[in-house]
Simulated assay, not measured.
Amino acid sequence: MNTWHKSTYSYDVGACVEVSTGEETRIRDTQHREQGHLGFRAGEWAAAVKAIRGQR
């Protein structure tokens, strides 16, 4: 079972993201946990982070 933890980039401003790592990386909104999560396999997660950071 994966353990959820708050992202270090969320700070304490109320708009938080939780992350869970394991076979896949999962992310969810702490204020709307009931709406589920997004899951990424290792290669997908690396590509998503690279795209978010604007790297090519």
Rank of each mutant, 00 (worst) to 15 (best):
M1I: 10
V19T: 03
R28L: 11
V13R: 06
E44D: 15
A15W: 09
A46P: 00
A51N: 08
T8V: 12
A51P: 07
G22D: 08
Q55T: 02
R53M: 13
I52L: 10
A42D: 09
E34Q: 15
A51E: 12
R56A: 15
W45L: 00
Y11F: 11
H37E: 12
I27D: 01
R53I: 02
R33D: 02
G36Q: 10
K6G: 00
R28E: 04
G36K: 03
S10K: 03
A15S: 14
G43Y: 04
E44L: 06
T8L: 13
G14L: 01
A42Q: 15
W4V: 00
T30C: 14
D12P: 02
G14A: 02
K50T: 15
V13A: 04
N2D: 04
H5V: 08
S20C: 13
F40T: 08
T30D: 03
Y9M: 14
E34D: 15
H37R: 05
Q35M: 14
S20R: 08
V13H: 15
A51L: 15
G22I: 07
R26D: 07
K50V: 15
G36S: 07
I52W: 06
K6E: 03
I27P: 00
R26G: 08
R33L: 02
A48D: 03
Y9R: 05
K6P: 02
Y9A: 13
D12S: 11
G39P: 01
H37I: 00
H37F: 14
G43R: 09
A46N: 15
Y9V: 09
Q31Y: 00
A47N: 09
G54D: 11
H37M: 10
E34G: 04
S10E: 12
